[in-house]
C-alpha cells in the first residue's frame, strides 16, 4: 500500500519563507488526514509543494506507489467558465497526457466517477451554469477520475451544504479505506475533522505545530494557541467527541 512522508519540506515565494521544515511521520494508504490551520497558515502552499508545483528544500517521500503519477491535487475552485459540459470537463481531467482519441474505457471511468459522487444528473450541464457547491463536486470528480493513490484536496467542502459536506467526507473515508488511497484534505471545520479524519496536521505560519491522531491534535490547548479560540472537546451523549466553542469575552 502507498505511503507518504514529508522530510523537512520548505518553500518560499521570493524571499518570503512560506513553509518551514515541515516533517511528518509516514502516513499510510487507507487513511484520511486532515490538514488544519488558520487562514494563510500555508495549507495550499504545502499541497502545491507536495504535488511538485513549488520548488524548495526537503523531500516528499512516496513509497509503494503503483503508477508513475500517484499524487493528484485538487486546488480550490476559481470559478472559470468554459463552454464545456460537466461530463467533458471530467473527461478532460482523465485525458491529460494521453492521445486525442477517447476510448469506451475512459467514458466508463467518467460515468462511474460521476455516479460515485452522486452528480450524474448534472453531467449535461455547462460549467458556467453551476452553483458553487456543484462546481466543487465537479472538481472532486476531476480529481477522482484520475485514479489517484494519494489525493490532495484543498477545502473541498467550503461551498457545500451540510448534507453534501457529510456525504462527501463520508465518501472520502469509504474510498480511502476501500482502495487503500491516502487522502489529505484541508478543512476549516474542526468538528468535521474530528468526525471524519484519522490523523491531522496542524499548521501555523508555515510551521507544523502538531501531527498525529486527530483527537490528540485538536485540544483546548492547541485551539487556544493556534486559533486564539477558547473551546472544549467533550464527548456527546453517544460518546463522540464534540467541539464546544466558548463565546469571546
Amino acid at each position: 500500500m502507498v505511503g507518504l512522508q514529508l522530510d523537512r519540506l520548505t518553500a518560499r515565494y521570493g524571499s518570503e519563507e512560506i513553509l518551514r521544515e515541515v516533517t511528518t511521520p509516514r502516513f499510510p494508504g487507507g487513511q484520511v488526514v486532515g490538514l488544519l490551520g488558520p487562514n494563510a497558515a500555508g495549507k495550499s502552499t504545502l499541497f502545491r509543494r507536495i504535488f511538485g508545483l513549488l520548488k524548495g528544500g526537503g523531500a516528499v517521500c512516496v513509497d509503494g506507489a503503483e503508477s508513475s503519477r500517484p499524487i493528484v491535487y485538487m486546488p480550490q475552485d476559481t470559478g472559470a467558465n468554459a463552454a464545456l459540459t460537466v461530463y467533458e470537463s471530467v473527461l478532460l481531467a482523465r485525458m491529460q497526457g494521453r492521445r486525442l482519441k477517447v476510448s469506451d474505457e475512459d467514458l466508463d471511468r467518467v460515468d462511474a466517477t460521476l455516479a460515485e459522487l452522486g452528480i450524474s444528473e448534472i453531467a449535461k450541464r455547462e460549467l458556467g451554469n453551476l452553483s458553487g457547491g456543484q462546481r466543487q463536486m465537479v472538481g472532486a470528480a476531476q480529481a477522482l477520475v484520475q485514479q489517484p493513490e494519494i489525493l490532495l484536496l484543498d477545502e473541498p467542502t467550503a461551498a457545500l451544504d451540510l448534507n453534501r459536506q457529510i456525504g462527501f467526507l463520508a465518501l472520502l473515508k469509504r474510498i480511502a479505506r476501500d482502495r487503500g488511497m491516502l487522502i489529505l484534505v484541508a478543512l476549516h471545520d474542526l468538528g468535521h475533522a474530528l468526525r471524519f479524519t484519522d490523523q491531522a496536521m496542524l499548521l501555523q505560519s508555515g510551521r507544523l505545530v502538531d501531527c498525529g491522531p486527530t483527537a490528540s491534535v485538536i485540544t483546548s490547548d492547541t485551539l487556544w494557541r493556534v486559533y486564539g479560540v477558547k473551546a472544549r472537546i467533550e464527548p456527546c451523549s453517544r460518546g463522540v467527541p464534540q467541539l464546544i466553542v466558548e463565546m469571546p469575552d
Binding site: F51, L53, R69, V72, Y73, M74, P75, Q76, T78, A80, A82, L84, S89, L92, A93, M95, Q96, G97, R98, L100, L127, G139, Q142, A143, Q146
Partner: peptide, 18 residues
C-alpha cells in the same frame, strides 16, 4: 488539444492536471 482545453479551467486547475 487536451492541455489547451484545460487552460480554460484556469491556471491552477490546468496545473493540477499536469
Amino acid at each position: 488539444g487536451w492541455a489547451l482545453t484545460a487552460m480554460r479551467l484556469g491556471d491552477a486547475k490546468a496545473e493540477s492536471m499536469g
